[in-house]
Each structure stands twice: as structure tokens, then as C-alpha cells.
Nucleic acid binder design. Structure first.
Lengths: 159, 159
DNA sequence: CAAAGGTCGTTGCGTCGTCAACTATTCCCG
DNA sequence: CGGGAATAGTTGACGACGCAACGACCTTTG
């Protein structure tokens, strides 16, 4: 095993700030949605993903991937949202194993009435604190970081 | 209700990249720790927090706060870690309600052997993709953002 | 000093998410 | 075409976590 490249003070500070802030931010957004619209951040995002899909529907598999969740988690999320009337399941015609999750009109309405408060929260907590240049930096940084993460081959194990 | 200040294209891009990447990053770190050391990221961080505390011990209350968790979650985490032998509970002398969670030698050893792989993963996935300037930016941005989040008064509600 | 009110840590309960296993269907290839 | 491998979605078992409520203890106040 080679010598460990520890984080220097600056890196540690950045790492902690990033981790802590992210947790607080997600929690704040979750609470805002829960309080104002009785929906979790995760479920809200699922509705958003569906709303942006062609015909407002998606195969379960693709929905899971887009939401960065597992298939089982997606099954349960869709079941939940179906009971609330915001999503419905539609059988797939060309693949009889498949199921589409489709945003209902009620789901679209829910999204429309919930989005403004959510976006406002995202602004208040995040973007209002950043300069235009920082926003660009943010997108740039994380765009690059995600590259290494989405490549499954890039192993890290130390053995 | 005033007109919503929607996110522009650049902001949306940054927001998505940030959210997705963060999820992937946390998951990758979790998997690395789980695979190489049979410990979750959350539990690992708990050990780190304790290791940095005076006498390697902390009141449950303070530990919860430092870990950005609830008291009940911390109770369960400490119980878990206690069963693994990495933490022990020590009664508080000056406050008989209180309990200290204390890192055991075994816990310190676990941390020592686990940290290199974890730090390496953090490097590989995050810091190796960033320039020194970006690291500074990262710390700066999130330092500022956390200010608004740690102030409980800063309400966002639209109601 | 006694009583009211707060804090500490824990626990029951409900929710959410993952893994592994299962059924049904489709794909691949001889 | 036929049979094994792969894939889709679901479910059961399980673990983690938050909220609310609880008993024990401390603090404040009259």
C-alpha cells in the first residue's frame, strides 16, 4: 500500500462544508415541500422527471435510472404516487413485461402548484448566495466529477 | 403570490449536476467503505467526529448535532457501533441524565485502517477532478450557503 | 424547599429505501 | 423452433431514520 495522500486543510474545509451544507440543503428543501405541499423531495423529483418525459410517461426501468434509484425503490415510489392519484401505471404494448409510469393530470396540477415554492426555496438557500460566476463554476465542477462516477469501470478499491 | 423566479438554463444545469453528482458521490463512498471495511459512510463519519473530540468522547446531544442527525438516530448509531466494539457508552459524572459516547481503541484502530481507502476514494472521485482554484471556490460557496441554512430564522415558506 | 418546566437519552411506531429472490416475458444462438 | 440466459417489475425481509412520547434528571422560580 502506498502512502496516503491525505486532504490538506483547504480540502478538508471544502469537503466538510460541501457535505454538511448539502445535507442541510436537502433537508430544508424536504421540509419546505413536506410542510407546504405534503410531498417528499424524492417524490417531487419523480414527478418532475415524468413531466419532462415524452408523453409524460416512462418505463419503470428508465425512471429508476433517471431518479438514481433502484427498481424496487421506484416500484414503491410509483405505488405511493399512484395511490395519491398523481401517477398511473400503463401496460407496455411492445413488451409485455414492461410497465409505464405516467403522470396524471392531477399529478401535473400538483407539480404546477408545488413548483413555485420549491424553486423559490432553491433560490433562497442556494442561488441567491452565489454569484453568476459561481453558478457557472458549480455546473462545471460537478459536470466533471460526475464523469468519473458514471463510468462504472473507474474502480477505486485499494485492494 | 408574486411571479416565480424560475431557474434559467445555466442554473438548472448546475442544480441537476450538483444533485446527481452528490448522490452518486455519496453512494460511491458508501460502497467503497462497505466493500472494503464493512462500515457505512454515516457510521464512519460518526467515528471520525468522535476521534476529533477531546478525550475521544462526546455527549450524545453534541454528537447528534455534529453529525447533523437527530438524538434518536444517534442513539441507534451508537448502539450499533457499541455492539461492534468501536464505541462505548460512559456515564456522565456532572449530569446524571447524560451519556458520553467514547471511541474505543478498537474504534480508533478501525478508523486508522479504514481512513486511507476512504480518503483515496474522496480524492479519486472529487478532488482529483478539481483544480486548486475550484477547491477554494467549493469551500467558499458552500461556506456561504450553509450560513443561511444554519440560521433557523430564515424562513422560506411562501404561505 | 417544592413545584413547574426544560433537557437528556431512549423507545415505539411509521415510512422509506435496498438487497435478494421470484415470476413473467423476451432475447440469443445453436 | 427450442431451451438457456438475460431483463422487467414486484415482493419479502431487513435496516436506517425521523417524530412523538416517555421516564429520569436538572434548573428555575416563587
Amino acid at each position: 500500500m502506498e502512502k496516503t495522500r491525505w486532504l490538506d486543510a483547504e480540502e478538508q474545509r471544502a469537503w466538510r462544508a460541501y457535505l454538511d451544507t448539502t445535507r442541510l440543503l436537502i433537508r430544508a428543501l424536504d421540509q419546505q415541500l413536506q410542510a407546504d405541499a405534503d410531498i417528499s423531495f424524492a417524490d417531487y423529483e419523480t414527478l418532475v422527471i415524468l413531466s419532462e418525459a415524452p408523453d409524460r410517461r416512462m418505463r419503470m426501468r428508465d425512471l429508476a435510472e433517471a431518479a438514481l434509484a433502484t427498481r424496487s425503490g421506484t416500484t414503491r415510489a410509483v405505488t405511493r404516487l399512484e395511490l395519491l392519484g398523481w401517477v398511473r401505471r400503463v401496460e407496455c404494448e411492445d413488451d409485455r413485461r414492461g410497465t409505464h409510469a405516467e403522470l396524471t393530470p392531477a399529478g401535473a396540477a400538483k407539480l404546477a402548484e408545488t413548483a413555485p415554492g420549491h424553486v423559490e426555496a432553491v433560490r433562497t438557500h442556494l442561488f441567491d448566495r452565489l454569484t453568476g460566476d459561481q453558478v457557472r463554476q458549480l455546473g462545471g465542477m460537478f459536470g466533471r466529477v460526475s464523469e468519473s462516477l458514471s463510468r462504472p469501470g473507474a474502480t477505486v478499491r485499494g485492494g
